[in-house]
Design a protein around this nucleic acid. Structure first.
Length: 275
DNA sequence: CTTATTTGACCATG
DNA sequence: CATGGTCAAATAAG
């Protein structure tokens, strides 16, 4: 398919960009190059996401003949309203962004559409989509799961990005740019970014519900050295950049640390820098 | 009443 | 077949 080849090309472009980034880290190229690379990578990621949306929506064409709406099986449910070819893709970890938070509140309004017990996971996973999915065709979704290492924290994985109004509002409420200083002598990365105490309209019903499942066993050992991804990421950055000190500036459109829409995923970062 | 959540069925994927 | 992601009827909440 044409779309698939476009996606393919974009993916290849992204892979090359990633390799370039790795090289950049090894050879200490100037920061302007790094910034440019980030921009290229961001554009590629966006284009990729857009292309995939196009493919996904064109796949929803009602080509097949009509089906009977319901089976006569005693319980609820229909039989497949519209056949989607590959429409239900499994989440691509390359296009998600995983964070760990103490609260599931991130300032956006979400609507829960499912919960699932996960094999080999202690706590169930909850599935959310943007409240404005239908009104504004906002494709953002997220998965929330209680952290096994640190019960009380939540692993939140975001997919897609908000295209609804609250996204703009969300961005406006933050600083226009973030500056991160890396200092070689200390292990501390000084992070200057706002952590806006966004009042959210989301209700936290099952924050407790998810919590309540944890009471059963304490068989695992709680590790104290567990880090949240952001610090982890900064730590890795520090190791890989031995120069005296430098600072990078990101604008809101390309990178948001506190609120999720990083240009590429955390996993992506880790795979980049941990080799 | 409207709107959101719960929960098991359904379905894609490997 | 097992697993994970989504749908939608039933139900709860406002």
């Amino acid at each position: 398919m044409a779309e698939n080849s476009v996606i393919n090309m974009l993916q290849r472009g992204q892979e090359s960009t990633d390799k370039l980034k790795a090289l950049l880290v090894q050879h200490k190229l100037p920061t302007e190059v790094a910034v440019l690379l980030e921009k290229i990578s961001g554009v590629l990621t966006e284009a990729l996401a857009m292309s995939q949306n196009v493919v996904a929506s064109s796949e929803q064409l009602p080509t097949m003949g009509e089906k009977d709406m319901y089976t006569n099986s005693s319980k609820k449910r229909r039989t497949q309203v519209e056949p989607k070819f590959g429409g239900r893709k499994r989440a691509d970890p390359n296009f998600c962004n995983k964070v760990i938070r103490q609260s599931i509140d991130d300032g956006f309004t979400w609507r829960k559409y499912g919960q699932k017990g996960i094999f080999s996971a202690k706590y169930p996973r909850s599935y959310f989509r943007c409240t404005y999915k239908h009104e504004e065709n906002c494709q953002a979704t997220r998965q929330v799961q209680q952290s096994e290492q640190q019960p009380g924290n939540y692993e939140i994985t975001y997919f897609g990005e908000h295209t609804c109004k609250q996204a703009k509002k969300h961005c406006q409420e933050q600083e226009q740019s973030y500056i991160i200083n890396f200092k070689s002598n200390t292990n501390n990365a000084i992070q200057h970014f706002a952590s806006p105490p966004l009042s959210s309209s989301i209700k936290h019903e099952h924050e407790e519900e998810v919590m309540s499942n944890q009471t059963s066993s304490d068989s695992f050992t709680t590790s104290d050295h567990e880090q949240v991804p952001c610090s982890n990421f900064l730590g890795l950055e520090l190791e890989s950049i031995p120069s005296d000190s430098f600072s990078m500036e990101f604008d809101c459109a390309s990178l948001e640390f506190e609120n999720i829409e990083s240009v590429f995923s955390y996993d992506h970062f880790v795979s980049l820098f941990s080799e």
